[in-house]
Amino acid sequence: MHEYSMTTMIVEAVLEEARRHGAEKVLEVELAIGEFTFLNPEQVEFWYKVLSERESLLKGSKLKIEMRKGSVRCLNCGYEGNITLLDDPAYHMIVPTLLCPECGGTVKIVSGRECTIKRIKLLGR
């Protein structure tokens, strides 16, 4: 939904880092997107292509996106792992729940909200 503004921030952060290193070109950007963000990787890729074309430092660079699974922790029994998915026959769709699969308590999301620039590959000047 807000892939455009997020990708703008990614591009700015990469440009800043590349300039700080006095690089000639950015060759590649590696991004990790968490399961619980609202970012669609295809739309991020689309905007990256559009925005990177405008910047000579970024022109032609590749964007690699890794989708990262998130995790939850139970506030009651300490269960840690994937979020529980309920297959709801009434809707024929899978609905995530904060219900703990072990004890029926409530879990909290502990990871999977990130949109992290992991590393960038630069060409020296």
Partner: peptide, 14 residues
Amino acid sequence: EGEVYDVELEADIL
């Protein structure tokens, strides 16, 4: 000049 190198950023935009 001309060297390719990686920079670890680990910068979370959110």
